[in-house]
């Protein structure tokens, strides 16, 4: 997970207004979902690939890995759509197999439908990953603040984001300490070690929140966490990219 966060901070589009980047990603997601064609999905993956690697400078390898992060879900869910199960011999199936008393079947239409879903999901995921890889979560939270999200929720998000990394580091240290003392050596042991890690982590969580409360109060904390907002750059390139992308997706839809 640190990989996505790292590139979010160091890519070339880092200082561009998060509203522009989120707008671009959402535009692609909405177009992919509404146009609902295999070609559109594949084209969207291509566009987002170009935007993330060529414009933002994210390595191709990283973009590919992140895109396939959910490969197992996609493979299983697509199999669920492509295959049909019935108790009687299926009608209108192009392929069928008998397993016990059940019939497993598939047809060209079902396979096409599964392919459509895979390409659409990959297109949408590519757009979301573009946003994730170019925009740090602090910028997303800042964008939500501009969109009038309640202050309490913004504070919670900021705290959660900050403490994810603190707790992950803590967890990592405990894990290494446990491993060097024969933790996780057998399956039974692994369960015990994991439970110990989880409960210690909870204590750490609680104590950290107490210490932070004290630290903040001694600096005049009255309930809201106020931070300076960053100034962002607006870039016309993103707008042109959006226009080109939307029109090519629409053209692909009309043609296909």
């Amino acid at each position: 997970m640190s990989v996505i966060d790292r590139y979010a901070y160091v890519n070339r589009l880092r200082h561009i207004d998060p509203a522009q980047k989120a707008g671009l990603a959402l535009l692609v997601i909405v177009l992919c979902l509404l146009l609902n064609r295999t070609v559109v999905g594949i084209l969207a993956v291509g566009w987002m690939w170009v935007a993330a690697t060529w414009q933002a400078g994210v390595p191709r390898r990283v973009f590919g890995r992140v895109l396939l992060a959910e490969g197992s879900f996609l493979a299983l869910a697509a199999a669920g759509v492509a295959l049909g199960v019935s108790a009687s011999p299926p009608l209108g199936a192009d392929w069928q197999w008998r397993i016990g008393s059940l019939w497993l079947s598939s047809s060209i239409a079902a396979v096409n439908h599964a392919l459509l879903l895979v390409s659409r999901a990959l297109g949408c995921a590519a757009a979301m990953n573009f946003l994730a890889l170019t925009t740090p979560l602090v910028d997303v939270v800042e964008l939500l603040r501009r969109l009038r999200t309640p202050v309490l929720l913004i504070d919670l998000m900021a705290l959660i984001y900050r403490f994810i990394f603190v707790l992950l580091e803590c967890m990592e240290r405990i894990y290494i300490a446990q491993q060097s003392r024969l933790g996780y050596s057998t399956r039974r042991n692994a369960m015990k070690s994991a439970a110990l890690l989880g409960s210690r982590l909870f204590l750490e969580t609680y104590q950290r929140s107490q210490r932070m409360q004290t630290a903040l109060e001694s600096r005049g904390y009255d309930g809201d966490l106020r931070v300076l907002s960053i100034t962002y750059r607006r870039d016309w390139r993103i707008v042109w990219l959006g226009i080109a992308m939307a029109s090519s997706l629409l053209l692909a839809w009309l043609a296909g």
């Binding site: 919670l156 900021a158 403490f163 707790l167 982590l201 932070m212 409360q213």
Partner: peptide, 27 residues
């Protein structure tokens, strides 16, 4: 939060705990 202001920080850190817990590896 209105009842106990310090719960705001506790809830924030607990959210992070929920996130991190889901990354815990169990057999």
């Amino acid at each position: 939060v209105a009842q106990k202001p310090e719960i705001r920080l506790l809830l924030g850190v607990s959210g992070a705990f929920a996130f991190v817990l889901s990354a815990l590896k169990i057999p």
